[in-house]
Structures are given as structure tokens and as C-alpha cells.
């Protein structure tokens, strides 16, 4: 009894600590002069629109990779694991610099792509690229765990029932990994939307919300940061919250 009360106390403390900064936000916001800076609307549109594109790319490319990693054991697999960890480990600012070195106007890939008409510096594609790199490793790791939780035997039964491997994937693996994949999508979304460091280097323009918060702070002050932050929460939260609730409901 007392032990469970102790655990509950610790849990309450953790929640309190989590809530503290946001309580601060409620107190610090100047509700009587609540207003937006010039360009805030554009930043919201950029963040939402381009994050959705990035999320689409992450799911389209990350899902096959995650499935492959979950289902195949090959020699040198530790290299793949190391690569994923490296992408997670690299500080965002450094990742931005590395991307600029590769895809910037003087980078080996950047100069080639620029000739083909794809500019990966301070452009919408650059913004998407920055978010893609920031969130892809999180998605792949979470999605791999989701696929690993699907009993292999069920996939094999589906094969013996006469379906091609591709149909088995869509009719068995994907539905059974659904809950874990939803969590992976939610994770990728919050990672992509909140990304600041990578975006700052390769896609200062078009300004998304995180960079706009920074410029608002520099140009105007805190009074211009809080209103945009409220809007950021309002637009960013519904997708991961709904996905998370759906997962909880299915598990219960």
C-alpha cells in the first residue's frame, strides 16, 4: 500500500515537472495584448504544409526500410544500426552543416541537383529535406519495433494460403503493426514539426514556426513569441494526440 502510494507520488512529481514550463507559458502570456507578428500566418502554413510533405516521404521510404530491418538478418547489419544511431546522435546544428556540405550549392550532390533545377538551400524542398533527415531515424526505429512485434508465423501462414509476399505485407504485416506504426508516425510528426537546428542551417527561408519564433524573439521580443507558440501547439498537437488515443483505445 505505502509502496504504491510512493510510486504514485513519484508519478505525480514527474507530471508536475512536465507541466511546469507550460504553466509558465500560461502565466507569461500577455492575454490582454494577445496578437500576432507580421508573417506568423505564413510560418504556420509553411510548417504545416511542408511537414505533411516530409511526413509522407518519411513514411513512404522509412516503412520499407523498417520492415526490411525487422525481417532480415544480414552480415554487417551492425553498420546499418550504427548509421541509424549516427543520424540520431548528430546534434541538429551539425546535421544542418553536413547537409549543407552535401546538398548546398557547392556540395557534390547540391551542384548536380541545382543543374536539374532542384535547389536545396533556403527553399521549400530544402525545408522538407531538413525535416526528413531530422525525423527519419526516429520513424525507422519505432516502425522496426512495430514490425518486429508481428509474429513471423502469421506472415508465413499467409504465404502458404497462396498470397504473394506483397499481398501478405498489406493484409497481415501492416494491419498487425498498425498500432506501433501509428506511434511511429506521431513521433516523426512531432520531431519534424519542432525541428529547429537543421532547418536553421539549410532552410532559414521559407520560415517555419520554430525559426519564426527565433526571429520574433530577436526582432520584437518575448511578447511576439508566446502567441505563435500557442498556435504552434494548436496545430501540431491534434495528429499525434489522436493517433496516441487511438492506440490506447485498441490496447485497452
Amino acid at each position: 500500500m505505502s509502496r504504491s502510494r510512493f510510486a504514485a507520488g513519484l508519478a505525480a512529481l514527474a507530471l508536475l515537472l512536465l507541466a511546469a514550463p507550460f504553466a509558465g507559458l500560461v502565466l507569461a502570456t500577455d492575454w490582454r495584448h494577445f496578437g500576432f507578428a507580421h508573417g506568423d500566418g505564413g510560418a504556420v502554413a509553411v510548417s504545416l504544409g511542408l511537414s505533411l510533405v516530409a511526413l509522407g516521404l518519411i513514411v513512404a521510404l522509412g516503412t520499407p526500410l523498417a520492415w526490411w530491418l525487422a525481417r532480415h538478418r544480414v552480415r554487417g547489419q551492425w553498420l546499418v544500426d550504427a548509421l541509424l544511431l549516427l543520424a540520431l546522435l548528430t546534434p541538429p546544428l551539425a546535421m544542418g552543416l553536413l547537409l549543407a556540405a552535401m546538398y548546398g550549392p557547392y556540395g557534390p550532390a547540391g551542384s548536380l541537383l541545382e543543374r536539374a533545377g532542384l535547389v536545396l538551400t533556403n527553399s521549400a524542398p530544402a525545408f522538407v529535406m531538413a525535416q526528413f533527415y531530422a525525423a527519419l531515424p526516429y520513424y525507422v526505429l519505432a516502425a522496426r519495433a512495430a514490425f518486429e512485434s508481428v509474429p513471423r508465423e502469421l506472415e508465413q501462414i499467409a504465404l502458404t494460403l497462396g498470397h504473394s509476399p506483397a499481398r501478405c505485407f498489406f493484409r497481415v504485416s501492416l494491419p498487425l503493426a498498425k498500432l506501433g506504426l501509428a506511434a511511429a508516425v506521431a513521433l516523426a510528426w512531432v520531431r519534424a514539426l519542432g525541428e529547429f537546428g537543421v532547418v536553421l542551417i539549410v532552410a532559414y527561408y521559407p520560415q517555419g514556426i520554430p525559426v519564426k519564433l527565433w526571429t520574433n524573439l530577436q526582432d520584437i521580443g518575448l511578447s511576439a513569441v508566446y502567441p505563435l507558440l500557442w498556435v504552434f501547439f494548436l496545430v501540431a498537437l491534434p495528429l499525434p494526440l489522436a493517433l496516441g488515443l487511438a492506440v490506447r483505445r485498441r490496447l485497452a
Binding site: I157, T160, G162, S164, V172
Partner: peptide, 28 residues
């Protein structure tokens, strides 16, 4: 495996948990 005309029942029978009984049968 998908081209072999065998009906394979592994240990524990392993129905697809996300499909109803009839949907399991209709799978093939």
C-alpha cells in the same frame, strides 16, 4: 510457399487475430 498446394496448420493454429472467424477462412 504461395505456389505450393498445401494446407499448413502450425502448432497453436495461429489464426489472424485482426480478422473474424469467417474472414480468416476467406483469407485464401
Amino acid at each position: 510457399p504461395q505456389r505450393r498446394a498445401v494446407g499448413y496448420l502450425p502448432q497453436g493454429h495461429t489464426l489472424f487475430p485482426h480478422l473474424r472467424a469467417w474472414q480468416n477462412v476467406a483469407f485464401a
